[in-house]
């Protein structure tokens, strides 16, 4: 059975059991097995079902005795759970980043629209412009124009008067010169519009990742804790 004791030694060394304690346990085990062998008692009578798995036996003994040093991280979470934690963190970062992209593109439209409202500079002749937002500012030559969506089109309302398009009543809209000093930079409509779908996709992916991680977390923890042990 010296091979069994050697296997145990290797496992204790791998687990970081101090040499003095490992030597003591190995010596006791070897002496007990030698006694049993001398009396014709099978090793299974001494080791129980641990005789078939020396590594698990050694780990169980050292663990129960409390002589396995806790490495940084090992006592915090099992390996699988640590991996899952990284996935959760990445999913959270993706979700937060995507949310910021979506909100920022909307905020840019709205902040410019507020400036446009304050200026009250009326626009020259304008045309119908399609767009996804209820309130947005677009460039028309030397002017920025606030437009209001009603029905299927975004309709700029020139000269601050109510304007009727295709039978729908629209609110007044205003335009102002593009070079006013207090006017913040106008975001590139095409760029921000193209980023928004990507932002929404990333937001859905991030939230989906978070939900999946939360759903998997308890099962992973249970699986980690259910490692078989040959000892009582």
């Amino acid at each position: 059975m010296s091979q069994f004791v050697d296997e145990c030694r290797r496992e204790w060394k791998r687990l970081g059991v101090p040499d003095a304690i490992a030597n003591e346990m190995a010596a006791d085990l070897a002496a007990d097995l030698a006694d049993a062998d001398a009396e014709g008692v099978p090793a299974e009578d001494v080791l129980g079902n641990g005789v078939f798995d020396p590594r698990a036996f050694a780990a169980s003994w050292a663990g129960e005795r409390g002589v396995i040093p806790s490495a940084p991280g090992r006592e915090r979470l099992p390996r699988r759970s640590r991996r899952l934690s990284v996935i959760v963190a990445l999913a959270a970062i993706v979700a937060i980043g995507a949310g910021l992209v979506v909100l920022r593109s909307a905020d840019q439209h709205q902040s410019v629209a507020v400036v446009a409202l304050r200026a009250y500079v009326r626009a020259p002749n304008l045309t119908v412009v399609p767009g996804p937002l209820e309130v947005r500012v677009v460039r028309r030559g030397s002017h920025f124009v606030r437009v209001v969506r009603r029905g299927p089109f975004i309709v700029p309302a020139p000269y601050g008067r109510p304007f009727t398009a295709r039978g729908s009543e629209v609110a007044p809209a205003y335009a102002l010169p593009a070079k006013l000093p207090f006017l913040p930079p106008i975001p590139d409509q095409n760029t921000s519009d193209s980023l928004r779908p990507l932002g929404w996709i990333l937001l859905v992916v991030g939230i989906g990742g978070l939900i999946l991680s939360v759903a998997l977390w308890p099962r992973r923890r249970r699986a980690d804790q259910a490692s078989p042990s040959p000892g009582y």
């Binding site: 079902n49 641990g50 169980s60 003994w61 129960e64």
Partner: peptide, 14 residues
């Protein structure tokens, strides 16, 4: 008899 059961050593450790 502990034949087929767990060993006493982990229990002694505990």
């Amino acid at each position: 008899s502990i034949v087929g059961e767990g060993s006493i050593y982990p229990l002694l450790g505990r």
